[in-house]
Simulated scan of single mutants.
Amino acid sequence: MKRSIIVVALATVLATLVATTAALAGGSRDNTLYRYIGQLQSKTASSVTVTVQNGNHAALRSLIGQPQVQEFATNDKTVFLKWTNGIPTVVGLDDLAPNDYVTVNIRADRGATIAQTKVKPAATVADRGPTWERPTKPLYLFRGTFVSSADGTITITVKGGNRPALKLLIGRPGDQTFTTGPETVFLHWAKRIPTVIDASKLKVGDRIIVRIRAGRGSTLAQVQATPAKRVADREPRASETNQNNQS
C-alpha cells in the first residue's frame, strides 16, 4: 500500500514538473529578435516588401536558400519611424519612401524560418533614408545610471559597456563624466518609441547609454572629451544593436 502511495506521489511530482517546463517553454516564445535590413520596394496597408541586404544573425540564418525580396506583415501595433540626422520621428506607413533603406524588427521563436517570421506583424519598421551610412570610427559605448548633467557634460555611474569602452575603465572609478554638445542627440524610449528630449529631462537613477565615436586606440580622456553622438534613456535591449550601427 505504501509503495502504491509513493508511486502515485512520484507520478504527481513528475506531471507537475512536465507542466511547469511546458509553461516555461511557452513563455519563451517570440523571444528572439529578427532584424532585416534592406531597401523598401513597396507597401500595403498590412505589409512592406523589402529587398533584404543585411540583418542580424537570426535574420540572415532564416534567409538561407530563400529569395532576397521578402514581404513582411504589419498591423495597427507596428511602429513606423523615420530617422533624420540621428533623430527619430514616429510617422505613418505613407511616409516610408520607396528605395529607402529600412530596418524591420520582428519577434519570433528561436530558429524560426523566414516563412514563420514574415507572417508575424513587425514590431517596428524604421526608414533610414536613401543611403546607408556606415560609421567611420569605432564605437565606445557606456551603460549605466544617470547621476547629473551640467553645461556640456553628463555624469553616469558606469555599470557596463562594449569592449573598447570597458578596457578604458580598468582601475577607474565607476562615476565618469562625458562631453555633450549641439550634435548630441538625447533620446527617451517608451514602448519601443524614441522621443528627442534634452538633458534636463533625465532623472537620477535612469538607465542610460552613452555612445561616442572616437579614434581607434583613444585614451579615456580623449573619449571623454569627444562629444557623445547619442545619450539614450531607457533604451530597449532589442534596439541597441541597431542604434550601434548608426553613424
Rank of each mutant, 00 (worst) to 15 (best):
residue 115 A to I: 01
residue 115 A to R: 10
residue 117 T to K: 12
residue 117 T to Q: 11
residue 117 T to R: 14
residue 117 T to W: 10
residue 118 K to Q: 13
residue 119 V to T: 15
residue 119 V to G: 12
residue 120 K to P: 00
residue 120 K to D: 07
residue 122 A to R: 11
residue 123 A to P: 00
residue 124 T to P: 03
residue 124 T to G: 11
residue 127 D to F: 00
residue 131 T to H: 15
residue 133 E to A: 14
residue 133 E to H: 11
residue 135 P to R: 02
residue 135 P to T: 04
residue 136 T to Q: 14
residue 137 K to L: 15
residue 138 P to R: 07
residue 139 L to M: 06
residue 144 G to F: 08
residue 144 G to A: 07
residue 145 T to P: 01
residue 145 T to D: 08
residue 145 T to R: 15
residue 146 F to T: 01
residue 146 F to Q: 05
residue 147 V to E: 14
residue 148 S to R: 15
residue 149 S to M: 03
residue 150 A to C: 00
residue 152 G to W: 10
residue 153 T to M: 06
residue 154 I to C: 02
residue 155 T to C: 07
residue 155 T to G: 05
residue 156 I to D: 01
residue 156 I to P: 02
residue 157 T to V: 07
residue 158 V to R: 02
residue 158 V to P: 03
residue 158 V to Y: 05
residue 162 N to S: 05
residue 163 R to I: 02
residue 167 K to M: 08
residue 169 L to Q: 06
residue 169 L to I: 02
residue 170 I to K: 15
residue 171 G to C: 05
residue 173 P to A: 10
residue 173 P to V: 04
residue 177 T to I: 07
residue 179 T to S: 14
residue 179 T to F: 05
residue 179 T to K: 14
residue 181 G to M: 10
residue 182 P to H: 12
residue 183 E to R: 08
residue 183 E to Y: 03
residue 183 E to W: 01
residue 184 T to A: 02
residue 184 T to D: 04
residue 185 V to A: 07
residue 185 V to H: 04
residue 186 F to T: 03
residue 187 L to E: 10
residue 187 L to T: 05
residue 187 L to G: 07
residue 188 H to Y: 09
residue 190 A to L: 05
residue 190 A to R: 12
residue 192 R to V: 00
residue 193 I to L: 10
residue 194 P to F: 08
residue 195 T to H: 15
residue 195 T to D: 12
